[in-house]
Write a protein that binds this DNA or RNA. Structure first.
Length: 598
RNA sequence: GGCCCCGUGGUGUAGCGGACUAACAUGCCACCCUGUCACGGUGGAGAUCAGGGGUUCGAAUCCCCUCGGGGUCGCCA
């Protein structure tokens, strides 16, 4: 080794010893006759003192060395002179008196600061990701991510799980996300697909008699990116045979609570994780992944609205729609501009409009409110009693603002769900140190697709229907609930899983409901159906997204921050400039021709 | 594919129709400095204001297009 200890690990115990250090120049302070260099390696920073009386070739070294130069230092660890300790530095009680120095490599001036935590243009960071990752913040995140994965492995290993690697080159199966395809050289015109998840393979492992499987698995989906979505991402994929819902949920609750308590003790959890049915989540939060760090729940006001003279309410209800609302506490004093902005947002989400009712501009009791204190465009169509009834239903007080949307149920829910999230942010109710995990259960098995007129799986086609609902598969498939569960945290879907189908009969029945012919079933899923013929055990699992978990624990806003080399919104890797053209020879070998786009 | 936001020395920002010959901080270069730690001091270099087109007597500033980055809807079994 070019070093016999790390910069960050030095302490008073090393005083008097001679050490070899190697690292990057974090900063240099040249006093003419005396120079300090903060030397940085992956473990931390230590101050090295260069003294012309002690350090060989002092003048040459200090005039040449610049930030980010890679140097090797031999010297004595010494206690710092009294009064010159630096409490901001972990190694601030000591310093290294350099005897000799060697420049291992020079460095151009970096395109952005390595030694300061300053926000830099993201595309520049991504182009020079290897420099970006050198920064302390990114080093912390790399370590945290490692700790999370290590925690997961330890936790599952202790419980009898084994990690099994599964292929990256597999078969394209339809629906779901768009596949990334890999052309076959050996089989002209045929393609492998990269796994969207190892779903089918892990089920085959269950048939193979692996009782408890897991894998830190790369997954690939050729869909547009988001702050929490990348073309390739990492899942903890796990599957257990002879398992039931309760086992999986308990395992996950234990894993995530222990993980947070050990790795991020400063963050708070709500225990036990609350459980919400899909229907209740949609009803109260307008979304199947609610942020439960705050309330602002949605309530149905349809019955009250039906009794009013307000035509917007009446016509929505006459057309089978609903009137629902939320209460924004303390927002009764919102200005016209602020209210207009909320209206614009709501229209942007597809609603006809937003009815705002201001319950006065100062806090107090509902009972003291008079019609004169209430501000709303609808005041002349509503009685004081009707307004108070809505306010009570929304758990509002004087000084609050009621936000009400009328229309078709689905739209009203979605819009209020968005508005709720927006108000949660504006009112700063989204405490970054709180992790509000919640399980969402009782999903419908299928969703009806308006465009194709077909049923689509809510989760995936291998999810088992609830036993009590199996008879409904024949005549009312839309009413069937699946044995599917999600884990949600702070408005993010953290994990999704289910108890799977394990008999060929039921699997065929579900495929048929999804519109597959017998021939398609055999061609696309024959391997699964056949496997189920050979004593497939009941089994189920779940797949938490590693990137999203680390993002939450790191307090970051995008998963790009917790991925070493992420892609841009356009799915481009700026470090490598991928994707890139390939040679004609490569294309020929793969039996491919490029068609020029218009 | 739709909607929205952003693009000014290396970096981060200011400037938002005329006083811009583009400001500030930091970084960079040179010189000075033996106890600093975001060291300090003096001096200096560094910007086709993302690119193109237009409006105007005059554009970093207004409009259009393109490119790049981001957010989001669609999409994500």
């Amino acid at each position: 080794m070019l070093k016999d200890c790390s910069c960050g690990e030095l302490n008073k115990g090393h005083v008097g010893t001679s050490v070899n250090l190697a690292g990057w120049v974090d900063r240099r302070r040249d006093h003419g006759g005396l120079t300090f260099i903060d030397l940085r390696d992956s473990e931390g920073i230590v101050q090295v003192v260069f003294n012309p009386k002690v350090t060989e070739s002092y003048h040459q070294i200090t005039s040449e060395v610049r930030n980010e130069y890679v140097i090797q230092v031999t010297g004595e660890v010494a206690i710092r002179p009294p009064g010159t300790e630096n409490t901001k530095l972990a190694t601030g009680e000591i310093e290294v008196i350099a005897r000799s120095v060697k420049i291992l490599n020079t460095s151009k001036t970096p395109p952005f600061y390595i030694n300061e935590d300053i926000e830099v243009d993201e595309s520049l960071r991504l182009k020079y990701r290897y420099l970006d990752l050198r920064r302390a913040r990114m080093q912390e995140i790399l370590v945290l991510r490692h700790q999370v994965v290590k925690f997961i492995r330890d936790f599952l290993n202790e419980r009898g799980f084994i990690e099994v690697e599964t292929p990256i080159l597999i078969k394209s199966t339809p629906e779901g996300a768009r596949d990334y395809l890999v052309p076959s050289r050996i089989h002209p015109g045929k393609f492998y697909a990269l796994p969207q998840s190892p779903q089918q393979i892990k089920q085959l492992l269950m048939v193979a008699g692996v009782g408890k499987y897991y894998q830190i698995a790369k997954c690939f989906r050729d869909e547009d990116t988001r702050a929490d979505r990348q073309p390739e991402f990492t899942q903890l994929d796990l599957e257990i045979s002879f398992v039931e819902e309760e086992d999986i949920l308990n395992l996950m609750e234990k894993m995530f609570t222990s993980m947070v308590e050990i790795l991020k003790p400063e963050m708070r959890l709500i225990k036990p994780f609350p459980r919400l049915s899909y229907a209740d989540a949609m009803e109260s939060y307008g979304i199947d992944r609610p942020d439960l760090r705050f309330g602002l729940e949605i309530s149905d006001l349809s019955d009250i609205a039906a009794g009013t003279d307000f035509s917007v309410f009446r016509s929505a209800i006459d057309q089978g729609g609903r009137v629902k609302g939320i209460c924004a506490p303390g927002c009764g004093n919102y200005t016209r501009t602020q209210l207009d902005e909320l209206n614009r947002l709501v229209r942007g989400w597809g609603a006809e409009g937003l009815l705002t009712i201001s319950l006065g501009d100062s806090a107090g009791s509902l009972e003291d409110l008079t019609m004169e204190m209430i501000k709303s465009v609808a005041t002349r169509f509503l009685t004081l009693e009707q307004i108070l009834e809505m306010a009570r239903r929304l758990d509002a007080s004087a000084g609050d603002l009621l936000l009400i949307v009328a229309g078709k149920l689905e739209l009203v829910s979605t819009v209020l769900g968005e508005l709720r999230q927006e108000m949660g942010l504006r009112l700063e109710l989204t405490d970054p140190d709180l992790l509000a995990f919640t399980f969402i259960v009782d999903f419908p098995l299928l969703a009806h697709d308006e465009k194709t007129g077909r049923f689509e799986p809510m989760h995936h086609p291998f999810t088992a229907p609830k036993d009590d609902d199996i008879l409904l598969l024949d005549n009312a498939p839309e009413k069937v609930h699946g044995r599917h569960y999600d884990l949600v945290c702070n408005g993010l879907e953290i994990a999704g899983g289910s108890i799977r189908i394990h008999t060929p009969e039921l699997q065929r029945k579900v495929f048929r409901l999804l519109g597959y012919t017998d021939e398609e079933m055999e061609e696309l899923f024959g391997h699964m159906l056949e496997a189920f013929e050979y004593g497939a055990p009941p089994h189920g699992g779940i797949a938490p997204g590693i990137d999203r978990i680390v993002m939450l624990l790191a307090g970051e806003k995008t998963i790009r921050e917790v991925i070493a080399f992420p892609k841009t919104q356009n799915a481009v890797d700026l470090t490598f400039s991928a994707p890139s053209p390939v040679s004609h020879q490569q294309l020929t070998e793969l039996h491919l021709n490029i068609v020029e786009e218009q």
